[in-house]
Design a protein around this nucleic acid. Structure first.
Lengths: 136, 136
DNA sequence: CTAGTTGCAAAGAGTTTGCATGGCG
DNA sequence: CGCCATGCAAACTCTTTGCAACTAG
């Protein structure tokens, strides 16, 4: 079970080519259509689901009401990172930081919880938006 | 702007009465209906939106595809906490822990990011599910 | 009286599913 | 050839919106 199809390959290619970004299902559809090789929405979702299950890509939702985002994980460990989403300007900061290890250790030692480092999204205010808010 | 209505009061009461849980909009509808004082879905959503904007309740989404949850914040600072959601059994662990301060400091000092402590949801595996996975 | 609020039903976004057709192995 | 994948459209879930009736102040 698991045939190799043109559509499936093209979807994965697109994710790999954009591994520094996070794409929504619809963005993937649009990209594929622009390349002249449109793939049905349902097919995109079904392939994404498989890739997530395999562990090839990660999936997370950046905010309420927004659509889910997908990102190629790659083989390295360098892709474990925080996402910091600013509630002011909406910017998403990708952050690769060793502090993750500390957080991980703390949760493990004190709360017996094994953190999944691929899905972390924290909310707050970035520097600029924080300043604006303080001033007003 | 801002009348006091029976419906609005009842919605807030329900949230306060369940401040240790997180309720979805639909659960609130059902609870109100069971009390014999049904409130329209749209009204529930509109009131929740206001309460979130006021900062009276918090709102977060525990997982993809699931509906948003709402919880009364109260007046104390003791309600700032992590949510740890186990990807194995689905259990949500509410955790009040001083470590939050450290995380906060780190993000502020090293990344100029001011954390919103009301919206934190981390994913991973709880102790039991971790053990199961290691064994298999 | 007048502006904010309600409730219904319809619209909307994002995602999933049923089913006939098509393609991989 | 058999099974899996595709694509379309319809279904579905959660949430928002339009609008007329209602109600708090």
């Amino acid at each position: 079970m698991g045939y190799k199809t043109k559509q499936g390959e093209r979807i994965l290619e697109t994710l790999i080519r954009n591994e520094d970004r996070h794409l929504t299902a619809e963005e993937i559809c649009v990209l594929l259509k622009e390349e002249g090789a449109a793939v049905g929405t349902a097919t995109v979702y079904r392939n994404l689901e498989k890739l997530v299950a395999e562990g090839t890509i990660r999936r997370y939702r950046l905010d309420e009401g927004e659509s889910a985002c997908y990102q190629y994980i790659g083989d390295g460990s360098c892709h474990e990172h925080f996402h910091l989403k600013c509630l002011g300007c909406g910017e998403v900061i990708h952050l690769e930081c060793d502090y993750l290890d500390e957080l991980n250790s703390h949760l493990l030692e004190h709360h017996s919880f094994h953190l999944d480092r691929t899905k972390i999204v924290l909310y707050g205010l970035c520097c600029e938006c924080r300043n604006k808010e303080v001033q007003s």
